[in-house]
Computed example of a mutant assay.
Amino acid sequence: MPMPLIAVPFVRPRRRPGRGWLAAAVLCCCAAPGLALAQPQAWPERPVHLVVPFAAGSAPDAMGRSLAESLARELGVPVIVENQPGAGGTIGVGRVARAPGDGYTLVLSGDAAIVGDARFGVKLPYDPVADLVPVSQIAISPNILVVGNAVPAHSLQELVALARSQPWGLSYASVGYGTSSHRGGELLGRAAGLEMVHVPGSASPLPDVVGGRVSMFFANAAALPLVREGKLRALAVSSRERLALAPELPTVAESGYPGFEAVAWFALFAPRGTPPGIVARLEAQARSAVAGAAVRERLQAMGALPVGSDAATLAGLVAAAGR
């Protein structure tokens, strides 16, 4: 059977392009991939997740939610807060340290989960310098040394005298090893030569102090309502300056231990590999948020000192603390 004929339209041959045109075409083809790579991918195109490695309802959680609200307005996408407490914050921070560096997973961490401290039994399961990208230090949070009403001490001097008279008879609570509440108790014990029992781990030790199950606790400003209700007694603050919310309280340094300081700080980090352009935008938005009235007033209301540092300053802080 004869093969069918297929009509093929006649196309007049075109002239061969000149060398100049051909060279230009080659340059364009070679340059196109580079141009495409140079163009930053649109970000953000979907919700950003902010991991807060503390329990819902805690002061760091409130700090994270306030920051998330401001970032969401500036970025134009939802910023979803995810609480992942445990192990002094290292569980949540570890999750972000392993996350893709695409700008969609961030962490608001306390200092204990970033710098660690072998003196206080803290060994981090990740490298905070290699695995995380600093964005901005958000705030510093001084602590208040509180005791229960069953403790017969109305000043730090009286508390120290009581502890010296009862070796291992007094205890101090903390929210975890290496946290500012732990450092406060350890540093006070070393400075005053005290022997006390450390009771770690509770996400909220205040009920234990109120109930007399633990003698003392370096708490954040969340303890002040209980102090004003007469359920706790505040003796001193752990920062180098007095606390604006309770200016009547002396510092530990003023109470006989010069140079004493045990404060927490909180900062925003991204996973390693996050593009510098995204980090720069996050830094600018975080600093703008902290400078804004809404976030600043929220931080001050919880006894925190707003910071809003640049990324380089935060990187220097982490490097210095790790030495």
Score class of each variant (00 low, 15 high):
M3Y: 08
P4N: 06
A7H: 10
A7R: 15
P9F: 00
F10H: 14
R12K: 07
R12A: 12
R15G: 11
R15H: 09
R19T: 11
R19W: 13
W21K: 13
L22D: 05
A24L: 14
A24M: 15
A25E: 13
V26A: 15
L27P: 01
C28F: 13
P33V: 09
A36W: 10
A36T: 10
Q41E: 12
E45T: 15
V48L: 07
H49P: 04
V52K: 08
A55E: 15
A56Y: 00
G57L: 13
P60W: 04
P60G: 04
A68P: 06
A68L: 08
V79A: 06
V81H: 03
T90Y: 00
G92D: 07
R98S: 11
A99F: 00
P100Y: 09
D102E: 07
G103I: 02
G103F: 05
Y104R: 03
S109K: 00
G110L: 03
I114A: 14
A118Q: 15
G121T: 04
Y126V: 05
A130M: 12
D131T: 00
L132A: 01
P134H: 01
Q137I: 03
A139G: 04
A139P: 00
P142W: 01
N143L: 14
I144Q: 02
V147P: 00
A150L: 11
V151Y: 04
P152I: 01
H154V: 02
Q157W: 07
Q157K: 14
E158C: 06
L162D: 07
L162I: 06
A163P: 01
A163Q: 11
Q166E: 14
P167T: 03
P167C: 02
S171D: 06
Y172E: 10
A173D: 09
S174K: 06
G176Q: 09
H182E: 00
R183T: 10
G184V: 10
L188A: 02
A192G: 07
M196I: 12
V197T: 09
H198W: 10
V199D: 10
V199A: 12
A203W: 08
L206Q: 09
P207L: 12
G211D: 14
F217W: 10
A219F: 08
A221G: 08
L224V: 02
P225K: 07
P225Y: 03
L226T: 00
R228F: 00
R228P: 02
L232Y: 02
R233M: 02
A234H: 05
A234V: 02
L235Y: 05
V237W: 07
V237H: 06
L243Q: 14
L245C: 01
L245W: 05
L245G: 00
A246H: 06
P247S: 10
E248T: 02
T251L: 09
G256V: 08
Y257C: 04
G259A: 05
E261S: 14
A270S: 07
T274C: 03
G277L: 12
I278W: 06
A280N: 07
R281G: 03
R281Y: 03
R281W: 04
L282Q: 07
Q285D: 15
A289V: 09
R296L: 11
R296F: 07
L299D: 05
A304M: 13
P306L: 05
D310V: 09
A312E: 14
V318Y: 00
A319N: 06
R323H: 12
